[in-house]
Amino acid sequence: MKRTVAPGRVQFLKGLTANWSARMKEFAVGDKVRVVTLPPYLKTADPMPMLRPPNLIAVGEEGVVLACNPGGYWSVRFERGAFLLEESLAASPASDS
């Protein structure tokens, strides 16, 4: 049986794909990123994530992007561990924000 998708649904999916690819171009795996704002807590980038206090990293600390995760989160390796950071909390070191 052939499965069909409603035209409105196709446009919605195309929009999601375009937004996702546009957002994911900001960083690449291996890029260095700088923390611009601390979150209320940190989530480890482990297979079984844990919540950790935010004082494990500092504003201005640089890390290396390990992976891109759904929802605009990035796995970033810092000196004291690997954590999931929202896209809005990190910037490339070259930017003067």
Score class of each variant (00 low, 15 high):
88 S>P: 00
65 V>I: 02
48 M>E: 14
40 P>D: 09
32 K>Q: 10
4 T>Q: 06
61 E>R: 12
28 A>G: 09
54 P>W: 08
24 M>N: 15
22 A>I: 01
51 L>S: 12
26 E>N: 07
97 S>I: 13
9 R>Q: 15
96 D>E: 14
22 A>P: 04
69 N>T: 08
92 S>E: 00
66 L>N: 05
35 V>Q: 01
76 V>S: 03
80 R>Q: 00
52 R>S: 12
15 G>E: 12
84 L>F: 08
34 R>Y: 04
82 A>T: 09
9 R>Y: 11
14 K>C: 12
88 S>F: 08
7 P>T: 01
18 A>Q: 15
51 L>D: 15
15 G>C: 04
31 D>S: 04
57 I>G: 06
14 K>A: 14
51 L>G: 10
28 A>Q: 14
28 A>C: 05
80 R>L: 00
47 P>Y: 12
56 L>Y: 15
96 D>P: 00
7 P>W: 03
28 A>D: 11
83 F>K: 06
72 G>H: 08
54 P>K: 11
41 Y>S: 13
52 R>H: 13
13 L>G: 03
42 L>F: 02
73 Y>G: 02
46 D>P: 04
38 L>A: 07
72 G>W: 10
53 P>F: 11
90 A>R: 06
5 V>L: 09
10 V>R: 14
26 E>P: 06
25 K>E: 05
32 K>C: 03
25 K>W: 07
3 R>H: 05
35 V>M: 08
89 L>K: 11
24 M>R: 13
73 Y>V: 07
32 K>I: 02
52 R>Q: 14
31 D>I: 02
36 V>K: 04
70 P>W: 01
55 N>C: 11
39 P>A: 14
42 L>I: 01
57 I>S: 05
14 K>P: 07
79 E>H: 12
16 L>Y: 10
85 L>Y: 12
74 W>G: 04
